[in-house]
Write a protein that binds this DNA or RNA. Structure first.
Lengths: 229, 229
DNA sequence: TCAAAAGTGTTAGTGTTACACCCATGA
DNA sequence: TCATGGGTGTAACACTAACACTTTTGA
């Protein structure tokens, strides 16, 4: 009987908690919500849900992000498992995932429904349980990833300006970058296409729009390019 | 009733699988065992166990490594959670941990007890379930970690020679390193103490032993040093 | 005396950092 | 015309990578 080996073992609740990130007002923002039920009712919380027995943990994370944002075109990566005995009221193992989304695609009707809002990463309140730790680990991971993979573009619209792209990286690394060096580096990689159109919302002169050319990036990677900011 | 929120949710088995690494014969070795029970009886497997409801996942990993090696002075780090629906026969979420141990401290009587053995990382057989994937992810993580943290010393005895240290890094990165450049870099950090004693087991001339000075390292880190290989 | 591994410096090239002024535009 | 943010090049420096010979010793 093959079941015997498992039978006398404990089963635990398994949840996913999602650190959903968007880029707005030149800063990373995270979607958090006021928790509508006990325990910790009214506390600020990440967006989470339980893993069902018929879905993988990745699927569960994708489902949760979809539920709370209305977006299904998401960059998702696991942060890790959080498993202190007392991290929740019941024994719950939680698996953290961060998601990078284009905040323009956010279904704002869901904000009211879940009492959720986007908060700048520099102005996050204390979160319930170990959620603040999850955010900290996420920022760490994101910093390492964004340095070597072009994942930042998942946070932007199709068209973006270089000043916007730069402030995205400045928000990720939480420090100022010299704009000449930044431009030199990113343009030298030759993975951006300059468009004829300008964004004039933030200056009179206007900044040219650029577009990330995924096909070109993939091709250059084949040839041994390594992305690096 | 605070339990209501949890009550109708699925509970799952949660396991830890440990990638236990040692350094031997100038190469990274991983402890694997022939699985003594179904499913996949007889297949090569990592060392694992279930998470009990009264221990944290970190504690579970430490317990498992202790059980299978007899060592309790371990460097442990989580690799991540693995949660495909069909990754095991039953629905089991597994959390991978890698452990760096001094292989000299291994309790060899446990090898027979568990039908376990140390296998060079370059010569690993196919492992059951997603264990090969866990090893792959571990090597990736280890490469990133070992580049910026002095964790390699956990794999060595208190005293070690520079040729040994170099071959450790060569095994981690799976490529050859120029010995002049390597020595220059590691010695420049000023975190090793040269001893008066030589290891003569691998050459007539003998290689001087060195010792990692953790106190000095901690102090230099305070002052803004950054470790980098 | 010789085989085998340990030990030692220099140079060219590459990448990184620091830095200041002109441009285009709408109000 | 002026205030505002966009856009541009160069030089010093630091780091990395490439490279070959001498030393020590036991068999």
């Amino acid at each position: 009987m093959t079941e015997a080996f498992y039978n006398n073992k404990d089963k635990l609740y398994v949840a996913v908690d999602c650190i959903i990130m968007g880029f707005q007002d030149n800063e990373l923002n995270i979607l958090i919500a006021k928790r509508p039920f006990e325990p910790m009712k009214g506390g600020w919380s990440l967006m989470g849900g339980f893993v069902n027995s018929f879905e993988s943990i990745n699927e569960a994370a994708k489902r949760v992000v979809g539920e709370f944002t209305g977006i299904d075109d998401i960059y998702l990566e696991q942060v890790g498992a959080f498993g202190e005995v007392d991290r929740d009221l019941e024994r719950v193992i939680s698996i953290g995932y961060y998601a990078l989304v284009d905040i323009e695609k956010f279904d704002t009707s869901l904000a009211a429904k879940y009492d959720a809002r986007w908060v700048r990463i520099t102005q996050l309140p204390e979160l319930i349980f170990d959620h603040s730790l999850m955010v900290k680990d996420t920022l760490n991971l994101l910093q390492r990833r964004a340095a070597v993979k072009p994942i930042g573009f998942n946070l932007l619209q199709e068209k973006f300006t270089l000043p916007t792209l730069q402030s995205l990286y400045e928000s990720i690394y939480q420090n100022a970058i010299d704009k000449r060096n930044f431009r030199k580096k990113i343009l030298a990689m030759d993975i951006l296409e300059k468009l004829d159109e300008k964004d004039k919302t933030s200056s009179r002169k206007g900044a040219f729009y650029y577009r990330f050319i995924k096909e070109k990036y993939d091709q250059l990677i084949q040839q041994g390019l390594n992305f690096s900011i």
